[in-house]
Design a protein around this nucleic acid. Structure first.
Lengths: 216, 216, 216, 216
DNA sequence: GATGAATGAGACTTCATTCAT
DNA sequence: GATGAATGAAGTCTCATTCAT
């Protein structure tokens, strides 16, 4: 007789959905309770309060991304383009499948000035994202440039997610991903890159990517 | 003895600041009243309620941008690069001088799912922004491409403003502007990427633009 | 050029309508102001406040009834039945033409416990109404009985007006009037009445009434 | 240790008193909360809002009358006069023991124009009251007449309750009841009634009533 | 006399949180 | 662990009243 038990994870998962859609201030403890089949008061057995719940939700989401998404950037069995493709595919899956876009950006903007504890954690998430892209772009750019392009990319993706929300048009995100990939491919192929082994490796790799990757 | 009267404009200006910093749900009518030296109840002489105030604040800001910012894109006494420079300078002035970044993005994300009336107006604002950039980019790209680059640019700027908030680091916006300008310069410098100094090519292009641009 | 001036009377007449329809607590000074083309603040040039306005409205209405309605009961050029008919006609005109029924009953019930100054005045109105009917019924009943029947009649009419409101059916009032008249006619014709000149006069009179009154 | 819990019924009973005395608009949620030992906000655990509370209070009162009062009219172990007597006794008990008279009439008049949902329910209450009297009067009158007399009676009682409030004199209600009873007795005994079995039965019954009923 | 901005008290309602069961 | 009644602070909004113009 499998008794349905609601545990912290379940509550956090429900919070994730609700917070992403309604933001921090507008979601009530009742909303979250309803989303996981509990009553308002019961949540306090698992979390100290709303702020604690938000914090743990951010941490949960960050951990999920570290494990399932950002790690892709360090999977050296993949080419750089393959990495970008996989990241794009996952991002589109996450940001487009459920309403609300990106929890981190939503909560980050909504609470940036009043909840430093949220901000610090959200910053850590973006930092890890940027670093993972930086690692990929390091293949085609020198270190400082790679960092910058990684930042531009995250910015462009998040901006696209925002436009997606405002326009109710999912194509913004796809196009942003394509744009980023094209930039990367151009850099990989670019003659202006110093002739190092790295570049050569990159060039080789890109050909492999093109050959392997039907989607390109 | 001229008695200081608080009129709608004053309230809207105060709202602008407060809404930008705290978002929609977190700012109270008392916050706004305090910000313009009134009592809570007095705001209702000028606005039907909080939602109406937000709406009119959005409209006010949009009108301001149309008049003071987006119009620059259509000032044909300027070259494309000059336009971008001015737009960047103003944007940085606005987004960085006061806390809170971009009201439109903040409110857009926070209320996208629950306040369609906000969303529609915010979308109109972004649409006008994108079109103004599209007009500039039309000089270096064919129509469809110009639209896309304009969208990428707005996304990148808004993403940068978001990172700015989360990182408490103002350089993100400047770099985004630089990135956009560089892309534009590269595009101006011709379809075939010159293997030589990109910058030189761009400089040439600029001169050409200035010379030619009386009628662009 | 006749300049439209709003004076106390105009405000009171507007109040009458609004108070009758919405009751005391639910009508706002703005409602009344709007009903007479003024702004809220302007009413305070004519009345000390809402309570004062209600008081003067009650007095105005009482005075109107004394002059135009209750006086009929003492017009000895009319028979008793004619008096009743005229009273009924006027009542129906007043209570049915405009929404809201009877201001005195509405306000009386709504404020009976909290506004003794209203209650006293409203009581005076009902007292005068009862006395006027008592005067008519004195023709057919001895003094004490006449008073009682007058009270019953006022109660029945007011109860009918209440049912009229609740049922949205105007016939209640007409039927109440008919019922009262029939009782009176029965009393006039009744064999149990002591054979006094008064009664004989009444009997004579009722025949005249019947002859004259097509509606009976 | 049974902790005293306040449940919906308790709140409704408190509401009943407060609404009857102060009317709908003038009673605040705090008034009601205070009347049942809660804080204002706590009421919202049991009711959606003030309107819902009023609605349920009306329904509660109607149900009470159906069960305890109007049912008397259909208790055929009683004579018609006995029924009237009991109804009168209960009415006087209810309307005179507590301040405020008749909730249904008070709220009905105060909100007739603005709260159709109240009106509909209050109308249902009066309809049931009228029908119960119609049932009694059916003994002495033909159907249509019985209905009319029932309406007159309800009107007269409610009008008397109103006068009771305005005059602060409880005798109005007693006299109204006596008047209604007298009319009924007269009808039962009346020679003008067509000589049917029904009437004979009624006549028989009235004698029994008089014999049995010590209070008359 | 009229205006309309401003006041400030108070209304209804929401909600994070607590706690006895 | 879960419940749901209760709390109390705070939020949006209303409105009678005042007053400078």
């Amino acid at each position: 007789m499998p008794v349905k038990k609601v545990d912290k994870r379940d509550i956090i998962k429900a919070s994730l959905k609700v917070f992403r859609q309604k933001g921090y201030h507008s979601t009530t403890m009742s909303d979250i309770a309803a989303a996981c089949g509990l009553l308002k008061g019961s949540i306090y057995h698992h979390f100290e309060g709303k702020e604690d719940l938000m914090l743990q939700t951010i941490d949960f989401l960050h951990a999920y991304y570290s494990r399932e998404v950002f790690s892709i950037a360090y999977d050296e069995s993949l080419t750089g383009l393959e990495k970008l493709d996989r990241l794009a595919a996952i991002s589109e899956d996450i940001f487009m499948k459920e309403k609300g876009g990106c929890l981190m950006a939503n909560i980050g903007l909504e609470t940036a000035n009043d909840y430093p504890r949220f901000r610090v954690r959200i910053k850590a998430y973006f930092e890890e994202w940027i670093q993972s892209l930086e690692h990929i772009f390091g293949q085609a750019y020198e270190a400082e440039k790679a960092r910058e392009i990684a930042e531009f990319s995250v910015a462009e993706i998040e901006g696209a997610v925002m436009l997606m929300q405002v326009y109710h048009d999912k194509r913004y995100l796809e196009r942003a991903h394509r744009h980023i990939k094209n930039q990367f491919m151009a850099a990989l192929a670019g003659p202006e890159m110093p002739a190092t082994g790295k570049v050569n490796g990159a060039k080789t790799q890109i050909k492999r990517s093109i050959a392997e990757n039907k989607e390109i």
